[in-house]
């Protein structure tokens, strides 16, 4: 008896014409007349990114690269948080004194569940859709880290922000082997009478610090 793989592939080959175009040139001939690169300058691009994030009710802050630590401290003071989990690749110089930052790969889900929130960086961001792209487990930490806590503070460097989805995907292709999470707003559902409810299972609050 043939195995199922052989059978399925055989059925596919029987279904397709005996003479086929060569694959690569045919793929290359696909028309891609959609917008590839962005059209805005960087100020406009960042403004668009911020506007999209605001649409999602994300908290927004800007700072320079020398004031990251104090900006983080300010945001956490406002949110009344004293301790956050952090991804391994977050530079120590970003972390303000007098607050606790825990990096520990061995935390159980229950321990993560009891945390006040998580601080991560991001690999790239897409302005037109307000998307933050997390690369695990690099600057974004393990997948559970940005999922179980109810609060996520994300540091986004301005030079990581691209304008269009195609530009974003090209960035992502350079780390396609990593697990990737694209976040565009807090979790939401419209399953009950199409009323949009924010905050189902992921973090209900997202703050973004844009480092210019």
């Amino acid at each position: 008896m043939m195995d199922s793989k052989t059978v399925v592939l055989q059925k596919i080959r029987n279904a397709l014409p005996a003479q086929r175009e060569r694959r690569e040139p045919e793929y290359a001939a696909i028309q891609r007349k959609y917008l590839q690169a962005g059209e805005h300058d960087s100020a406009h691009r960042l403004a668009l990114f911020e506007q999209r994030l605001r649409d999602y009710d994300a908290g927004l802050h800007r700072c320079g690269s020398s004031t990251i630590a104090e900006t983080i401290a300010g945001v956490l003071r406002e949110r009344q948080k004293k301790s956050l989990l952090v991804a391994a690749e977050i530079p120590v110089k970003w972390l303000p004194q007098n607050l606790t930052f825990v990096h520990n790969d061995a935390l159980t889900y229950a321990e993560i569940d009891h945390s006040e929130g998580v601080l991560t960086g991001c690999a790239t961001a897409i302005a037109s859709t307000g998307t933050i792209v997390l690369r695990h487990s690099n600057e974004a930490g393990g997948r559970a880290l940005t999922l179980i806590p109810d609060y996520h503070l994300c540091i986004v460097h301005a030079e990581k922000v691209v304008e269009t989805v195609p530009e974003g995907l090209r960035q992502m292709a350079s780390f396609a082997a990593a697990a990737i999470t694209m976040i565009s707003g807090p979790s939401a559902t419209s399953d009950i009478e199409m009323t949009r409810i924010k905050g189902v299972h992921g973090p209900r609050t997202l703050d973004v610090i844009l480092v210019i």
Partner: peptide, 29 residues
């Protein structure tokens, strides 16, 4: 190809739920 997602990730959320992008997309290998 991986970058073919750039087409479908624009079409699908807009068509399905009327969002510019779904809140969460997970990609893993």
């Amino acid at each position: 190809h991986f970058t073919d997602l750039e087409v479908f990730l624009q079409l699908l959320p807009r068509s399905a739920t009327g969002e510019r992008m779904n809140p969460y997309n997970s990609i893993w290998t």
